[in-house]
Design a protein around this nucleic acid. Structure first.
Lengths: 139, 139
DNA sequence: AATTCATGCTATCAAAGAAGACAAAATATG
DNA sequence: CATATTTTGTCTTCTTTGATAGCATGAATT
């Protein structure tokens, strides 16, 4: 399951995607409309900024706004960022690979093989979904 | 990601699937060969027994053995049992449904719609995988 | 000076992971 | 038949980890 953080991130991005990308939106506005704890949301938006997905402007008239188009922001990217690996086992993760302690030899591990397969198919699905798809569903 | 418990369960089942289903296997044998903490494994096997996937025999010559064929044991079943929902959001889970607090109206939530889609496709993959598939990979 | 983002720290809570002690059941043996 | 041995079953506790959330303070812009 996705963590709340991930869900909040997706909600916030969807909210921003529906607004004019040239007008910064206040954190507070996003927080209230998307029902996200304000302080928690701050750290989420900051992470998104560091990843180049959002940009922000300080001072009066400031706020956050999209730096990429909604169609460019893949859901898989957001999940990886806030939820970690998409793969179901560390030993089959592309971006967060880690050896399994139990497993002597990955070459002969049936679990490994089967879950590489699952990962590939899952990625095919998730990489075809973007924030734009979420927005489209809400119209 | 799958919990260790889930991974252990899959390993243990794979181990048992490779043995004669009529001869009970000792917990200790499974634990050592699959590198699973013994006591932790006990509780896992017990859960599998309660679900009708395994059966056990006490006393000398006792142990655990499969009650279903490896092909009958779907990986999705084991994941649900030890890892919880397969869906990525509580509001799109078939077996563990829960409303989202943030979300006023599921009908208009774009996230909901998109992740129902993801869930359906994920299930299509996982329900086609069984313990037999893992065993086959190891031969 | 007011507004807004940026950063770091702390507290809380729940769940996962692991291990020990003792109980119950089945079998073997004399 | 009685008892010892083997093996699973149950219960309890401990440690570790991660998610969630809130607070306090600093820095930048208008």
């Amino acid at each position: 399951m996705l963590s709340k953080k991930t869900k909040y991130a997706l909600h916030a991005l969807t909210y921003l995607a529906k607004k004019d990308a040239n007008e910064p939106t206040l954190i507070l506005e996003i927080a209230e409309n998307s029902r996200i704890p304000r302080k928690f949301l701050e750290s989420i938006l900051l992470d998104l900024k560091k990843q180049g997905i959002l940009n922000s402007k300080m001072g009066k008239g400031g706020g956050y706004f999209l730096r990429q188009t909604p169609a460019q922001i893949q859901i898989s990217t957001i999940i990886r960022l806030f939820n970690g690996p998409i793969a179901l086992l560390p030993c089959v993760s592309l971006n967060y690979y880690q050896r399994c302690d139990e497993c002597t030899d990955e070459m002969t591990c049936g679990l490994n093989k089967v879950f590489i397969d699952v990962r590939n198919e899952t990625l095919r699905i998730l990489e075809n979904k973007s924030i734009q798809d979420i927005v489209n569903q809400e119209l």
